[in-house]
């Protein structure tokens, strides 16, 4: 599904990612682990096509990002769903519209506007909300919901989008342990058996080990290790977080 070869991203002269090789197959659950500023968010933005590599190549769903533009790129992006730590929902809109925003790829502008006035396909949105456990919130204003509930709305949005791959950028960082576990279970359940791939960036290595098949350790924009969950050792994890060696890139934008 995703294939990066020697991919790198520079912001001005600062490298955020350097020479990254990564292959993700259908149905795989991959966790990106590493400290803040390791390049996890940048890597995810390559995978969903919102950023192009400045070096090397990135092939997403069989298309080289360097060659797709405009509406072709949009067609590609419709098949990839992304969830963010900050949810990135539209606060003043009702939950149903935020969920339906996952359908924008299928809808024309006119249909999109019409749905804002008279919500279209409410049944689908409601089913998605039921699947993430908050069906009763359908008509609430999104910014009145708690952080955990908003993350569920974001998941419901991805559900109605019916993507072939789900990307999640620190989806549980601002949640308490119970909510975090629930969200991770939901995410893991949406991928795997269905043939849908999941790439999730995580701070908590235990969560990654529990819910993912494979762990990719990032530090300072480079891949330190790429191993099956059962092969990851304490030493490998410690190498990611050891202070003092390489990796002063603290505080990258939305890491």
């Amino acid at each position: 599904m995703f294939s990066l070869r020697r991919a790198g991203v520079r912001f001005g002269s600062t490298p955020a990612l350097e020479a990254v090789d990564l292959e993700v197959a259908a149905g795989e659950r991959v966790a990106l682990v590493g400290p803040s500023g390791a390049g996890k968010s940048t890597l995810l933005s390559l995978l969903n096509g919102s950023r192009r590599p400045t070096e090397g190549s990135a092939v997403v769903l069989g298309r080289d990002l360097a060659t797709v533009r405009g509406s072709e790129l949009r067609h590609l992006q419709r098949r990839i769903g992304t969830v963010y730590q900050q949810h990135h929902l539209v606060g003043p809109l009702r939950v149903v519209h935020n969920v339906n925003a996952g359908r924008l790829g299928d809808w024309s502008l006119l249909e999109a506007v019409r749905s804002l006035l008279l919500p279209a396909d409410v049944a689908t949105a409601e089913a998605a909300l039921a699947q993430v456990g908050i069906a009763e919130k359908l008509y609430e204003r999104t910014d009145t919901l708690s952080g955990g509930q908003q993350q569920r709305v974001a998941l419901a949005r991805v559900l109605v989008q019916r993507p072939v791959a789900i990307l999640a950028d620190e989806p549980i960082s601002s949640l308490d342990p119970t909510r975090a576990e629930e969200i991770m279970q939901l995410l893991a359940g949406l991928a795997g058996g269905t043939g849908r791939a999941l790439v999730v960036s995580l701070h908590a290595v235990e969560q990654a080990l529990r819910h993912c098949d494979r762990l990719v350790g990032l530090r300072g924009g480079r891949v330190l290790f790429d191993a099956a969950a059962r092969d990851v050792t304490t030493a490998m994890v410690e190498s990611l977080y050891r202070i003092g060696e390489r990796g002063p890139e603290q505080g990258e934008g939305a890491a």
Binding site: R74, R78, G81, T82, H88, L104, G105, L109, A112
Partner: peptide, 24 residues
């Protein structure tokens, strides 16, 4: 963020404007 999220899942500029910019 919200506009970027919509655009990265393939929404057109017009749809992004109507769903993310106008309501806020």
């Amino acid at each position: 963020g919200p506009l970027g999220a919509l655009r990265s899942q393939g929404a057109s500029p017009g749809q992004g404007f109507v769903y993310a910019t106008l309501p806020r």
